[in-house]
Design a protein around this nucleic acid. Sequence first.
DNA 1: ACCTTCAGTTGAAGCGCTTCGACAACCAGA
DNA 2: TCTGGTTGTCGAAGCGCTTCAACTGAAGGT
Lengths: 337, 337
Amino acid sequence: MVTLAEVARHAGVSASTVSYVLSGKRSISAATRERVERSIRELGYHPNAGARALASNRSNIIALMMPLRTDMYVPVMMEIALAVATTARSHDHDVLLLTGEEGPAAVRRVVGSGLADAMILMDVELDDARLPLLREAGRPAVLIGIPADPTGLTCVDLDFTATGALCVEHLAELGHRDIAVVGEAAAVYERHTGFAERTRDGLRARAAELGVRLLHRPCEGSYAAMAGTLARILDERPNTTAFIVQNEAVIDPLLSLLRQSGKAVPEDVSVVAICPDPVAVQASVRLTSVAIPAQEMGRRAVELVMAKVRGQEESLLDLLPPRLTVRSSSGPAPTVH
Amino acid sequence: MVTLAEVARHAGVSASTVSYVLSGKRSISAATRERVERSIRELGYHPNAGARALASNRSNIIALMMPLRTDMYVPVMMEIALAVATTARSHDHDVLLLTGEEGPAAVRRVVGSGLADAMILMDVELDDARLPLLREAGRPAVLIGIPADPTGLTCVDLDFTATGALCVEHLAELGHRDIAVVGEAAAVYERHTGFAERTRDGLRARAAELGVRLLHRPCEGSYAAMAGTLARILDERPNTTAFIVQNEAVIDPLLSLLRQSGKAVPEDVSVVAICPDPVAVQASVRLTSVAIPAQEMGRRAVELVMAKVRGQEESLLDLLPPRLTVRSSSGPAPTVH
DNA sequence: ACCTTCAGTTGAAGCGCTTCGACAACCAGA
DNA sequence: TCTGGTTGTCGAAGCGCTTCAACTGAAGGT
């Protein structure tokens, strides 16, 4: 392995000069810089990560903690993770992948060992066990999702309350008065995952304001579960003319079931989905939807956490405003004969 | 931050003794060990990762390189990644997440800087640009997927040739003589991704042996694409009585389209999928399928790469045998009237 | 001509750990 | 009693980098 010292010798300068060329923390004459850079290239030098971390007390790594829930929609997680990784690289950092397996202790381990300079936490619950550790650790951290008490923490998330409200508004404007919501799996609510509860609250509040009748039902991710949920919904509210779907796994099953029961979309029933845009356009009907900006969330989380590492930026709540795109699955409520 | 030296002072021993207690590389009296461990607990000591890496020349990190392809089925990737992360933890290692963004250069960077002790590469192409770098680097590495020339490399993968063969056999035994294959997106083949080509080869070879007529068509991941592909297939081969689906994104669309065109599954047409088991059981028909053992692949990749880090284990090809589970989507070919 | 300033460079002191060789202290065998 | 082999512990030498204080010249001001 080539070391800094060898580069220095090869270029005829001192080790510290090479270090300063690399970090840019002191001015270096153009000639010297040139010479050093040539030596680095010729020798194929790469600074040793461990030595660098030890001397500078910075690892240039950010930890991404991503609990695995099989009942959560995976592609969104994945998209966030990849956005985090690529954005981190553009800040000259790498990403360490932590699963939920290890539990809250992972926070202590990573912080204590100086393995990572900062952390990004995903799948945050309202009363998350990792938060006390995080607060006491005092390391730069950003949450994707919002806990019950976000004081002193920085959080990024889609504004799910507004998202719920927006869906209801759109359908209410089209004249729908009986709306059914196909929510996430029951376990998601039982775990008090913020986004699911907030969406529900947003839906309910706006529905009440607009005088719309709302039926909210959780639903597992299988075709059979969707069939059961749909049957129950139509049984309880035969006049339902619109559906809002949050569990992306059952979007296609729902459309398929509606088709089978002779209901045309959007002539007979409207459907609004809360999902990433690609999912909305690949479904059998191009769906009116509120996008989940997974990439944007990942990107912002990194920007915010890097700012913290640099010592800038206070804690804040970064709520992304929802954006509803009208496509072919929503239309005026059918007129009653 | 608590250091090893402080622990040593607190326990009344030398720094090296503490180090040996931690690593177990020398025998330590029970009494001393006890005392040191108590000090560690009381002070809340965590060894500094950078210092450790510098001194021992091992980072206890393995890099997972996962190129992002939006045309690849994401959940499988995710499942592998999570399996890799948790298995790595059980070997006292962490996982660094690298995307394809950086290209082959990432290999050089990670190896050169000593950031990772080993690498696991996903989404390997037949003629992968990362392989020359990997070979010359001489670091422990394992591929998930198999390149055209795997000499000197260790690879883990499902035996996709056998998988293709198995699907055809199953359907041939049931009497099907006209089988259509819904493949991955065209781009996957154009990129020469090993698994897709090998599956196709396995399908074709076995079909030829068994005297079965096979139609292989790539298909993008949307409902519209599946509709187009299905129409073409039925146009070209009206007598098709069975489908083999490799692109998991269009499984539900296919079932939905078959239903719409009045074809019952499995009475009129049989469907066999190549997908993770959860996908097979959550579809609208419980699918006969060959499982993609994502977790198993991730787990094995880590075991193999850790063995290499320890200096054991030669390079080898770890081909997992396919397992076909008969469910409710395949049955005897309909008799011609 | 002299002093100041500052850009450019350097040597040396660590960062916190691992590991090697040395060395007591002890036990068993002769 | 002495020798030889364990066993348990320690001191010191790095690992490869960053960074601080200090130094050297040359440019600029008076």
